[in-house]
Amino acid sequence: MSIQHFRVALIPFFAAFCLPVFAHPETLVKVKDAEDQLGARVGYIELDLNSGKILESFRPEERFPMMSTFKVLLCGAVLSRVDAGQEQLGRRIHYSQNDLVEYSPVTEKHLTDGMTVRELCSAAITMSDNTAANLLLTTIGGPKELTAFLHNMGDHVTRLDRWEPELNEAIPNDERDTTMPAAMATTLRKLLTGELLTLASRQQLIDWMEADKVAGPLLRSALPAGWFIADKSGAGERGSRGIIAALGPDGKPSRIVVIYTTGSQATMDERNRQIAEIGASLIKHW
């Protein structure tokens, strides 16, 4: 067993022997301040990774656009098919120029040779490549099948209805392509620590998230040296922004954090800054 596999296998073990965790309302004060600064709703939840206990939450059962955070769930569904012998990570998928959609920095470079399922998941999570996500959605049967996968996990809230990039439209009061912070946090925890996926697939999923290259201005910008984070960000229309993450000190994750916002007129930089400040408060009061 590799060191990384050992780390993920012992996530519940280490967490069980940690000192009790206590909620700190100071972080919620910052979440509410972010709402004021952005002029928009902000949803927040913080779960203990081992027990699933909610440590703090704000608007945990209000719907927010998922945006690209759905790509972690998508690759979880792909990995479940791999575990069941219905898919192979090494299978190569070929596609054409007509398949390319807006923001496809990886797939646009491989029109000639195609990409493997493993490479597509890596591109979808680490670079948020939209064509990679659409190609992977095709392998599982489309958005409705991802929703069905989530329902089978016990998540009857999260739903995907459309493809990239239309799913980022974020129309107010439109339930399409949305989740709730509580539902997303619980589902992410199941994917990373539950028995739904094999140990190898859980490790692969967290490795992809740990290698995320496009979430630097968010929670990662607030992390002290030595902290662990595996995350996936999302951005959408109407001032929408979000991030889902597993993080913790001492090089291992111990909490799940989900943050979503929508309806702001603020710039992307300002949305990023507010999420980073929430992260800084979380870490300060850990």
Rank of each mutant, 00 (worst) to 15 (best):
R162K: 07
A133G: 12
L282E: 04
R273A: 10
A200P: 13
I275Y: 05
E237R: 13
M180H: 14
W227M: 03
T139Q: 13
W208A: 03
R7H: 13
M127C: 09
P253E: 06
L137H: 03
F70W: 08
D207R: 10
H5K: 13
S2K: 11
T198P: 07
M127H: 08
D83Y: 02
W208F: 07
D174M: 04
G114Q: 04
Q203A: 12
Q86T: 12
E62N: 07
P224S: 06
N98Y: 14
G216A: 10
L137D: 01
F228Q: 06
L191A: 06
L223M: 11
H24Q: 11
I3M: 08
L146I: 09
G279I: 04
A225Q: 15
G216L: 08
I229L: 07
H151T: 12
A15T: 15
V117S: 03
D177H: 01
L73T: 08
H110I: 05
D113W: 07
Q88C: 10
S57Q: 13
V8L: 14
E87A: 07
W227H: 02
L73F: 08
V101W: 06
T131S: 12
E46R: 04
I256H: 00
Q88F: 13
L74N: 01
G242P: 00
P20Y: 03
V31D: 01
D83F: 02
E169P: 05
R273S: 10
L247Q: 02
S221M: 11
R118D: 12
E166W: 15
I278L: 08
I275R: 00
G226Y: 07
R189V: 09
L196Q: 15
S104W: 01
E210V: 14
L111V: 15
A211W: 08
Y260Q: 02
L192K: 01
D83L: 02
R92F: 10
E195R: 11
D177Y: 01
Y260H: 01
S201Q: 06
T107N: 03
L136K: 00
I140Q: 06
S240C: 08
V42R: 00
A16E: 05
N272T: 08
S2R: 09
L150I: 14
M127G: 06
G154E: 09
N168R: 03
R189N: 11
T131H: 04
V82R: 07
N130K: 00
A77F: 10
Q4V: 08
T27P: 06
A132V: 00
Y95C: 03
P249I: 06
N272C: 04
S104Y: 03
P224Y: 04
I206A: 14
L160F: 10
L19T: 15
A15K: 04
K213Y: 09
A15P: 07
Y44A: 02
P25E: 12
R63I: 09
R202F: 03
P25D: 10
L10E: 04
R91L: 05
T147W: 04
L137M: 11
H5G: 06
C18I: 01
A200Q: 15
L120V: 05
A170G: 13
T138Y: 13
N134M: 04
G236P: 00
A133N: 02
N130G: 05
M268L: 10
A124Q: 02
M268F: 11
S254G: 12
S281I: 13
G76D: 01
L188R: 00
R7F: 09
Q274E: 14
I11Y: 11
D33L: 12
N130Y: 05
M115Q: 07
F6G: 06
L188S: 06
K190R: 14
R220A: 04
V214F: 05
L160N: 07
V31H: 01
L47D: 01
E108P: 07
S68I: 00
L49T: 08
V257E: 02
A40L: 05
T267S: 13
P25T: 11
R7I: 10
L247K: 05
V78E: 03
G141T: 05
S264W: 04
T186C: 15
R271G: 08
R220M: 03
G194M: 08
P172Q: 12
V101G: 07
N168Y: 03
D129M: 00
G194A: 12
T147I: 08
G234N: 01
L219M: 09
V258D: 01
E56H: 08
G85A: 09
G142S: 06
T267D: 14
A16R: 04
V21R: 05
L73E: 03
W208P: 00
G242F: 00
L19S: 15
L199V: 15
S240H: 06
L111Y: 09
Q4I: 12
G154L: 05
H285S: 10
K232I: 00
V82T: 09
L191H: 04
L247I: 11
S104E: 01
A266W: 06
V117A: 04
Q203K: 12
M1H: 01
S264C: 10
L120N: 02
T198F: 07
P20I: 02
T138W: 10
E270S: 11
D113C: 09
T112C: 12
L111C: 11
E175C: 12
D33P: 01
T138N: 15
G43L: 00
L135P: 00
N272V: 04
E56W: 05
F17W: 10
P249N: 08
L137G: 04
P12I: 13
P105M: 06
M153D: 04
K109A: 10
P224F: 03
S128R: 00
V106P: 01
E61Y: 14
Q265D: 12
G234R: 00
A225I: 14
R92D: 06
N152E: 15
D113F: 07
I244C: 09
T158L: 01
L135M: 10
G239M: 02
V257C: 07
I283Y: 15
S233G: 09
G216H: 08
R255Y: 02
E61N: 13
A225L: 12
S51E: 12
V21H: 05
A123E: 04
P172T: 12
